[in-house]
Amino acid sequence: MSRGRQVLLLRHGQTGWNAAGRFQGQTDIELDDVGRRQAKRAASHLARLSPSAIVSSDLLRARATAAALAAQTQLEVAVDVRLREVYAGSWQGLTTTEIDEQTPELRQAWRTGADVRPGGDGETRLELGKRVAEAVREHAEIIDPGELLVVVTHGGSISNGVQTLLGVPREYWPVVSGVGNCHWTVLEQQRDARWVLTEHNAFSLPEDVVGDES
Score class of each variant (00 low, 15 high):
8 L>S: 04
10 L>R: 09
11 R>L: 06
12 H>L: 11
13 G>W: 07
14 Q>N: 09
14 Q>A: 06
15 T>D: 05
16 G>I: 09
20 A>Q: 15
21 G>D: 13
22 R>S: 00
23 F>C: 14
27 T>W: 03
27 T>K: 15
27 T>A: 14
31 L>D: 04
32 D>E: 09
32 D>Y: 07
33 D>W: 10
34 V>K: 04
35 G>R: 00
36 R>Q: 10
36 R>N: 05
37 R>E: 05
38 Q>Y: 02
40 K>R: 09
42 A>D: 03
45 H>G: 06
45 H>A: 04
49 L>H: 00
49 L>N: 03
50 S>M: 11
51 P>R: 03
57 S>F: 06
58 D>L: 12
59 L>G: 02
61 R>W: 08
63 R>L: 14
65 T>C: 04
65 T>W: 00
68 A>M: 15
69 L>W: 05
75 L>M: 12
76 E>Q: 15
76 E>A: 14
76 E>T: 12
77 V>S: 15
78 A>T: 12
80 D>R: 13
82 R>H: 15
86 V>I: 12
86 V>Q: 13
91 W>V: 03
92 Q>T: 11
95 T>F: 08
98 E>K: 01
103 T>L: 12
104 P>H: 06
105 E>H: 15
107 R>V: 05
111 R>N: 08
112 T>H: 13
112 T>Y: 10
113 G>I: 05
116 V>G: 08
116 V>H: 06
116 V>L: 04
117 R>C: 11
118 P>T: 03
120 G>M: 09
124 T>V: 03
124 T>D: 07
129 G>H: 02
130 K>M: 03
135 A>I: 06
138 E>A: 11
139 H>S: 07
142 I>F: 10
145 P>Q: 01
149 L>F: 09
149 L>N: 07
151 V>L: 03
153 T>D: 04
156 G>H: 00
158 I>P: 03
164 T>Q: 11
164 T>W: 02
169 P>F: 04
169 P>I: 00
173 W>V: 05
174 P>T: 07
176 V>I: 13
180 G>F: 05
183 H>G: 00
184 W>N: 10
185 T>G: 07
185 T>H: 09
186 V>E: 13
189 Q>Y: 15
190 Q>R: 15
190 Q>P: 14
191 R>T: 13
191 R>H: 14
194 R>I: 12
194 R>E: 11
196 V>Q: 15
198 T>K: 15
203 F>W: 14
204 S>E: 10
207 E>V: 10
210 V>G: 04
